[in-house]
Structures are given as structure tokens and as C-alpha cells.
Amino acid sequence: MKRRLPPLYSLRAFEAAARLGGFSKASEELHVTPAAITHQIKKLEAELGVELFVRHHRGVALNKAGTDYLNIVNKLLDDLTRQTQHFKSKHRSQPIRIAGLHIVCNRVLLPAIQTFLVDYPEIRAELIADIKLPEFRSGNVDIIIRHGEAPPEGYETQLILEENLTPVCSPAFAASHLEGLQAKDLSGMPALYDLYWQADWQDWLQAAGLPDLENSLGFSLYSMVIESAVEGTGIAMGHTGLIRKELESGALIKPFELEIPSRNRYYAVTTREILRKQGVRVFWDWLSENVAQA
């Protein structure tokens, strides 16, 4: 059975005129002429077979039938608005959610995502930074950047960053040692380190043939390690992939020549199922291509 529905534009004109109390105000809101509003209202009244407004020399006002019909139209438009929003949230592309350690998000992911969004402005992305990585079973993340010696098994992975380890400090800290910084004196200097990356100092000291540290200060965030080193608090173990900005600006320097490859690398990790999601595959392929170019 064919539905006999009043024209939607006539309903919009009627609702605006009733809410605003006049055809002229409705025309301003809908960006049409008052004559167009009058035409749509007359068209609606003809379709319904009843007048909805009382016309007088100072304007118009809803009559009893108009008030009753306005209640119907308001319910219809409110429900249409709610259902449309529900439909959009269900079917439109969801943002890509990418998670990583706080420092990795800030120094590695953020610049990459900003460049990606320039290339693909229609795709939305959300960056989740924390000191503890979420798990895929939470259902709230699409890609995780993991830091480890090898990628986890059973996942789709790609290597995105390798780096070297070497001690770094501020120029002022280096200048405070009048006889110059000597690697053999490290055990007596304030050594800064990340609580989760304590093995980095051990690896470097072993490669340099030096004893373990005696004077050290640990932080739960590598960003705090960097900040303390820049302020001259001590000498920090530098991850060359994370401190490029400070090295290029001269805020941090490398007092020793020895650099060793870090045993850990940065891997982008996801699942085959997640890669089917709209936008995730686009970012995954883009990431692979741009990392290869770098």
C-alpha cells in the first residue's frame, strides 16, 4: 500500500512557523522567502484538509488543530533525529584507535599520525597513550605499538623503529666536569633511567667494559628521564629514536662515542580480523610504506 505522506519540507515550514510564531521568522531560519513558507503551509493544510493557523492582520497563530498537529510533527521529527544519529554512529567509519607507551605515542606515533591524516583527511584517528599497554581483548584498540626483542606470535606485525643506546646529558652537565666526562667515572655520576628499561644501562656498560652504576635515579616515564637530563640532573641512557629533537637542538649531547644497538625494537601489532575494519587497513599499509621509505 502506497503511503500518503505530507512533504517533508512542508512539515519543516510548519514546525518553524509554529515554533517561531510567524511565517517571516520561519523564512529567515530556513533561508527562503515568506511567500515560500506561505505556499508550503497552504500545501500542507490542503493535504490535511484542515487549517492549522488563525490569520490576522498582525500575523498568524496556531489554532487548536494546529497545536494538536504540532505535537505529532514534533514527535516525528524528534524520533527521526534520534534514529538518524543512531544510524550514523552505527554505519559511519569508526576512528582508528592506536595505543602505545606514553613516550612512544608522543615521539613516534603522533608525528606519523599527523602526516597520515594530511594524506587521508576523511579518516579519523585516536591516540591512546599510557604507561601500560592495553590488550586487544578489551575491544577498545585497533593497533598497539609494542617494545620488545621480537614481535609477539600469532599477530599481524611490522617493524617500525630500531634505535641505538648511548648516554646523553645536557651541555651544562658536561661542562660542570672541568676535566671532561670520562666513561670510567660513570659509576659515581647521577645516572637516570626508566624503571621499565633498566637493562639498557647494563647492556651499554657491559659493552663499554665498565662496572655497574652506584648512583642512579629511576623514573616510571621516559619523558621524565629526558626532562631531567635536559635540566642537568644527571646523565641518562639515550634512546636515539626518542630523543632526536633534543639532539638536533643541542639540548642533549652524546659525551661518549660508543653506541650500541638496542636489544628491543618497536613493532606495530594488530590482528587479521581488525585489519578488515574500515580505515585500519589503509593506515596499516600507509605505515608500512612510510617506514620502508624512512
Rank of each mutant, 00 (worst) to 15 (best):
E135H: 06
K184H: 11
I128P: 03
Y155C: 08
H239Y: 11
I128A: 07
S220C: 12
S228C: 09
I235S: 02
I235Q: 05
E246M: 07
T157E: 07
A251N: 07
G250M: 05
K245R: 11
F173D: 06
K184R: 15
E135P: 01
G209V: 15
L252H: 00
G139A: 10
G218S: 14
Q182G: 08
S176E: 13
H239W: 08
S138K: 07
Y155W: 05
D203E: 15
G180P: 12
L133E: 06
P134N: 05
T157L: 04
G139V: 09
L252I: 01
D142S: 08
S170D: 09
A191I: 12
P171R: 09
G241I: 02
R244I: 06
H177L: 13
S187K: 13
Q198V: 11
N215F: 14
F173H: 11
A125L: 14
G148Q: 12
L186D: 10
P151S: 07
F219Q: 02
R146M: 12
P167C: 06
A191V: 11
G154H: 09
L178A: 15
D200G: 03
P134H: 05
S187P: 06
A183Y: 11
I160P: 04
G139S: 09
Y155A: 04
G238F: 00
Q198A: 10
A208H: 13
E153R: 11
L252T: 00
R146S: 10
Q182I: 12
G232P: 12
P171I: 08
G148W: 09
E248Y: 03
Y155T: 08
D212I: 12
S176A: 15
Y193T: 04
A207I: 14
L221G: 00
M189A: 04
V225C: 02
Y196P: 00
E246S: 07
S228V: 05
E179H: 15
E214L: 15
N164W: 01
G250A: 04
S228Y: 12
R146I: 09
D130W: 00
I143F: 08
P171T: 11
E126Q: 14
P152C: 05
D130L: 02
G154E: 09
A191P: 03
G148L: 06
L165S: 01
T166M: 03
G238H: 00
P255E: 05
I253W: 00
E126S: 09
N140P: 01
G241C: 04
R124I: 03
L181G: 03
Y155D: 04
